[in-house]
């Protein structure tokens, strides 16, 4: 098991009252599984992704990621865990604007202090996503699809055990989205990575092994795509 959420609750403190965004969230994810989290806007999808990836802390409950309880970890320990075992893909790509495509891909490796071979890995991944000629281009010189492909390359550069993707095709047109989707699944298959996708796109969700549906901050269903209920 790579990820386990037990009794997760997330409350935001509003001006006058508390706002419960997630409540009683329980699920487990096995190594190599491809899972999607779907639900209407405001259902808590992105909050759940942030919690699972160790970007935020739950108000209560226990989260175990790659065998380690992240609820108890310090910020630095979580940063270290993310760097070693987690990859990210964002809807708005989140590339560093001041770094070239190649440098953006190298960053996770450099954070691991892997100076030797980092460039080769990054070049290889950029070639894999079809951007071999764009190594030295800055994000502002790339199209949206190209930026997301750089983001894909970066996500896989540290050989993550688990990859979190937040609406990976949400900012792309259908055709480009499809290319990125295919690349994501291809790379995932190759690297045997666990993939968790947050999406509105049911077509994309249906390409995953399992779908968790959220509504009002609660899981309303957790099923394999063949409709076998997990809960």
């Amino acid at each position: 098991m790579i990820l386990e959420a037990k009794e997760i609750k997330k409350i935001y403190q509003g001006v006058n009252k508390e706002l419960t965004v997630l409540d009683n969230i329980n699920f487990q994810v096995e190594q190599g599984e491809i899972l999607s989290i779907v639900g209407p806007s405001g259902s808590g999808k992105t909050t759940l992704l942030g919690l699972c990836a160790g970007l935020d802390n739950p108000t209560s409950g226990v989260l175990t990621l790659a065998g380690e309880s992240i609820s108890q970890m310090t910020e630095n320990q979580k940063a270290d865990l993310r760097n070693r075992k987690v990859g990210f893909i964002f809807q708005n790509f989140q590339l560093l604007p001041t770094l070239t495509a190649l440098e953006n891909v190298m960053i996770p490796l450099e954070l691991q202090e892997r100076t030797e071979g980092a460039k080769a890995i990054a070049e290889d991944l950029l070639e894999r996503v079809g951007l071999s000629g764009r190594h030295n281009h800055y994000p502002s010189q790339l199209s949206g699809g190209e930026q997301q492909r750089v983001s894909l390359a970066r996500a896989f550069s540290n050989d993550p055990q688990i990859l979190f993707a937040d609406e990976p095709t949400g900012n792309l047109d259908e055709e480009t989205g499809l290319i990125v989707e295919n690349l994501l699944f291809e790379l995932n298959r190759e690297k045997q990575t666990t993939l968790i996708i947050v999406t509105h796109d049911l077509d994309l969700a249906n390409k995953t092994d399992r779908i968790i549906k959220l509504k009002g901050g609660r899981i309303i269903s957790d099923q394999n795509v063949n409709n076998a209920s997990i809960r």
Binding site: E75, A79, F88, L96, P97
Partner: peptide, 15 residues
Amino acid sequence: VQSIAILRCLGMKSQ
């Protein structure tokens, strides 16, 4: 801020 958040996301410690 955005660059820092990305770096933090990718595993860079706050210090």
